[in-house]
Design a protein around this nucleic acid. Structure first.
Length: 437
RNA sequence: GCGGGUGUAGCUCAGGUGGUUAGAGCGCCAGAUUGUGAUUCUGGAAGUCGGGGGUUCAAGUCCCCUCACUCGCCCCA
């Protein structure tokens, strides 16, 4: 590997400059505040899981990164295979199952962590990214009210970081599965996968695929498309689904649930939460309400938040059924897109409030004690550790956007001065009492 | 996994049809009557032209392979 290659960016592993990272940190603080305002507690799970834990749920062809020790013996069968987690849901399920006795249910937690996926990167798709998950897990049946609360939490969180407006589409897996069952479609998983392409390839393309791949006749295709085209802001969509005349118990149950959720969300501005019967979500473990949110301004950009209800995530891990519901916010995806669109106002390059310059000839102890006195009063203070020409020190402060410059006296007991970077006013000041502004 | 595009200084890029010691702007460092930020001026450091092979008297330039980045497809929590 040449030195040049060592320096190259790695596709899908984004890094931000300090001025942007500061904004990202502010976002994280705001998201935390919203999650905690709803009573969710934070946990952090390890970055790796046994490969079998990650593969057991969902599909088996996941693009996951496995990890190993460079010094491991490749023939050692006892060496376990770990992999970086590709979401927070599966690790959370494992964590809950492992700590059943010590958790109080319903267990409500949020997690803001990196996730890793090996998929080919492209705009909005990374291999290492930050994700914020909010979930509720219970040992008993989870009330439907959570189905309405979860998207509200997400909505408030996204608003808090100024990333909206989003359009959140809502559907219910029971409606899809019940409807397809009522039509006699057995391969619901594939039907859902094809329907998911409606936005991309249109009704005609979807109809062709349904015919070619699932062997549906024109009548069934029309029925499937008829359902997928239903969307609306309120509970009335339920009537329109019923009007299609497909019958099944599961469908009725799903429609009742969807009706309840949409009724609860009717108080939000039109277009914020929309029932959309074409939304399916790829993940296999969803069993009820599903959510998918996109930027209102960038409809072609991939989903930025997604989630839903699942009957059971831990069934393979312990002999117990733990239903849950949650949603995930794609922090890196949102951040990178808004950055690309120039919507992120980069702040200062450092948190420093005051730069204490190295006054020519001043004893180092005077400079250090000056900085210490200011720092002890809660200010963010850095010293210029080199007796370099003032011009260079001031340029450093200007380049970093440091708002105040402090001039310690050349000898102990002398006069201190402070300068406002913006106005360039310079006045005597006492490090024991001085305050900004 | 498949297809298109692109790889030259820290960054953004020039370098018709091959031809002496590979350039610019920005950035960086130093200086312009010995310590207060700008602009300007002067000087300086910095590139095995992504890597390997081939054609040729001669390759940054042409051919092949390979790697990386990037856009799209596939897939997608």
């Amino acid at each position: 590997m040449t030195p040049k290659e060592k320096l190259r960016p790695i596709s899908g592993f984004p890094e931000w400059l300090p001025e942007y990272r500061m904004v990202e940190l502010e976002w994280i603080d705001k998201l935390r505040a919203v999650f905690e305002s709803f009573g969710f507690a934070s946990i952090e799970t390890r970055s790796v899981e046994p490969v079998e834990v990650l593969l057991k749920q969902g599909d088996t062809d996941k693009e996951i990164y496995s990890i190993g020790r460079l010094l491991a013996d490749p023939d050692d069968k006892a060496e376990p295979t770990y992999a970086l987690h590709y979401d927070m849901t599966v690790p959370m399920a494992r964590y809950v199952a492992a700590n059943m006795n010590d958790l109080t249910f319903p267990f409500k937690r949020y997690q803001i962590q990196k996730a890793w996926r090996g998929e080919r990167p492209q705009e909005g798709r990374f291999r290492e990214f930050l994700q914020c998950d909010v979930d509720v897990v219970d040992t008993r049946e989870i009330p439907l009210h959570f189905d309405a609360e979860i998207p509200v939490i997400m909505h408030e969180a996204v608003n808090a970081i100024g990333a909206g407006p989003l359009v959140t589409k809502i559907n219910n897996r029971k409606v899809l599965e019940g409807y397809y069952a009522g039509l006699g479609i057995t391969d619901t998983a594939n039907a859902i996968r094809i329907i998911d392409k409606l936005d991309k390839i249109g009704a005609k393309g979807v109809g062709t695929m349904l015919g070619d791949e699932l062997g549906l006749d024109g009548d069934a295709i029309a029925k499937v498309l008829g359902l997928a085209e239903i969307r609306g802001n309120d509970a009335s969509v339920v009537q329109r689904v019923k009007a299609l005349g497909v019958k099944s118990d599961l469908l009725d149950q799903g429609l009742d649930e969807l009706h309840f959720v949409m009724r609860e969300l009717e108080r939000y501005p039109e277009g914020t939460f929309v029932a959309d019967l074409s939304i399916a979500r790829g993940l296999a473990y969803y069993t009820g309400t599903v959510y998918e949110a996109k930027f209102a301004d960038f409809p072609d950009f991939p989903t930025v938040c997604g989630g839903g209800r699942y009957d059971n995530l831990v069934g393979d891990l312990i002999n117990k059924r733990l239903p849950g519901i949650g949603i995930s916010i794609g922090l890196t995806r949102i951040f990178a897109k808004l950055m690309r669109e120039g919507r992120i106002q980069a702040g200062r390059k450092a948190p420093t409030d005051i730069l204490v310059v190295h006054t020519q000839g001043a004893p180092y102890s005077v400079i250090r004690e000056t900085a210490g006195a200011l720092r002890a009063r809660g200010l963010k203070v850095e010293q210029y550790h080199e007796d370099r020409k003032l011009k260079a020190q001031l340029k450093y402060a200007a380049d970093k956007g440091i708002p105040w410059i402090w001039f310690p006296p050349a000898e102990a007991g002398g006069e201190h001065q402070v300068k406002n970077s913006a106005t360039r006013d310079q006045t005597p000041a006492d490090p024991a009492t001085w305050l900004p502004e």
